Computed example of a mutant assay.
Amino acid sequence: MIINGQAVKGAKRLAHHLMKPENEKVSILEISGTASNDNLKWALMDMEALGRLTQSRTGKVLYHANINPQSHEVLSREDYIRSADRLMNELGFEGQPRAVVMHVKQGRQHAHLVVQLTDLDSGKLRPISNNYYKHRTVAKDLEKELRLDRSPRRKSGKSFEQKEAQQAKKLKVDVSHLRTVVTLAYETAKQGKDFLRNLRQSAIELAKGKRLVLVDERGGIHSLTRTLKATAKPKEIKDKLRDVIPDLPSPEEAKERQRLSENISEHNRLYQSEDIALRQLAEFRQKKLMEEVQVRMIERQRQFQRQKGLGL
């Protein structure tokens, strides 16, 4: 089970999202604590109206959480209500108005929890802290209690995909494409200087701060080890790049280089078709595999000749 969530605003927009007809099934499991307990849109608008009492500067007076079992798992209404109760208790939202909506989309079941954050006693919003870890704790506990399969989780903080996808959206950089280009640059390089040359052909700089990072042509910073996580381990990366690591610029210096570069073009290789980059990577891996097979065949022939010479 995976649980995530955050404070949001826009009751009408959220109600529209939760009732989208593109879902194969929409079931309102519970609406409680509002004046309109039989209409989701009005219930969420009531919650938002109550939140205005806090004079919140951001207007984010609702908490929207997603409760996602794995694709093959099916939970009952009672299971989702129990999950919502556990999550609210862990986050410190006990007794707050809420709505619980279950969706089935493309055969996969999941649920949404919307909670009103206004504390009527204090006139302030309920605080939100360490929600990532609280989500993970509740998910792990529910997996045991409901006998669900354990979902893979990251070790800490905001995931690479979440954090860098947000940055990429802002900078209009395709993270998936960037990862493909960097992987191609890494696998075709024999040592660090080759890797740097390959990166610069795609207007990417390598820099060193507290860690090794990539700086794309729009100034976005991306962790090198996370970008290459499917290709090489951190130690392998450092060993391969040891000839250039001592002389790498800082991220700020790399950004300045990017700003001053006269070779940036919208037709740069970084923004070529991702299909081309993927094809180049596949071709290189196929060539490398064939070379390894050829080496093994030669070694087997030599071994056979030695055994034949010894009369074995």
Rank of each mutant, 00 (worst) to 15 (best):
A189T: 05
E205R: 07
A165N: 15
E187V: 12
K172M: 12
E253A: 07
P251C: 10
S273T: 12
A185N: 09
V213L: 05
Q191F: 11
D174L: 06
E217G: 02
Q191R: 13
Y271G: 03
G157V: 02
A168R: 03
H222N: 07
S223Q: 07
G192M: 04
S223K: 03
L148D: 09
T227D: 13
A254W: 15
D149C: 10
T180C: 04
A207L: 00
D243L: 06
T225L: 03
Q166G: 00
T231S: 06
L281Y: 01
H222M: 08
L228Q: 11
V175T: 12
Q201S: 09
G220D: 07
V182E: 04
D216C: 03
L199S: 13
H177R: 13
L228A: 11
R257L: 07
S250P: 02
L281G: 02
E262I: 01
R211T: 14
E252D: 13
E262K: 04
D174K: 12
E253K: 10
D247C: 01
H177P: 00
P246G: 08
G220T: 09
K169Q: 13
P251D: 15
A282M: 07
T188V: 10
A203C: 00
L260G: 15
R269Q: 05
R147K: 14
I204P: 00
R147I: 01
R154L: 07
R257N: 10
T183I: 06
E217P: 00
S151I: 01
K233H: 13
A207H: 06
A168Y: 00
T227R: 05
R197D: 10
P251W: 00
L224A: 10
P249T: 00
D239K: 09
V181G: 02
R150C: 10
T183H: 10
L148I: 02
L148A: 12
T227E: 12
E236C: 05
A185R: 11
D239I: 04
K169R: 12
E274L: 06
Q167D: 07
G220C: 11
E252V: 03
A282Y: 08
L171C: 04
G209C: 05
R242E: 06
K170P: 05
E161S: 11
D149W: 00
P152V: 06
A232Q: 11
R179Q: 14
I264E: 00
G192E: 03
A165W: 14
R197Q: 09
D247L: 04
V175N: 09
S151T: 08
H267P: 03
K170R: 12
T231H: 10
E283S: 03
K210W: 04
K163F: 09
R218F: 14
K163P: 08
V182Q: 02
L278E: 12
R211Y: 05
K229L: 03
E266R: 15
F284H: 15
A189H: 09
E164P: 03
V173S: 06
P246L: 11
A185C: 11
S202V: 02
T188Q: 15
V215D: 04
D275C: 05
K233D: 11
A207P: 01
N268S: 04
D243K: 10
Y271L: 10
R218V: 04
E161V: 08
E256M: 06
R242M: 03
N198D: 05
E217H: 14
L248Y: 11
A254I: 14
R242G: 01
I245L: 04
A282N: 13
E266Q: 14
K240W: 12
K210Y: 08
R226Y: 05
V213Q: 09
D239R: 06
K238D: 02
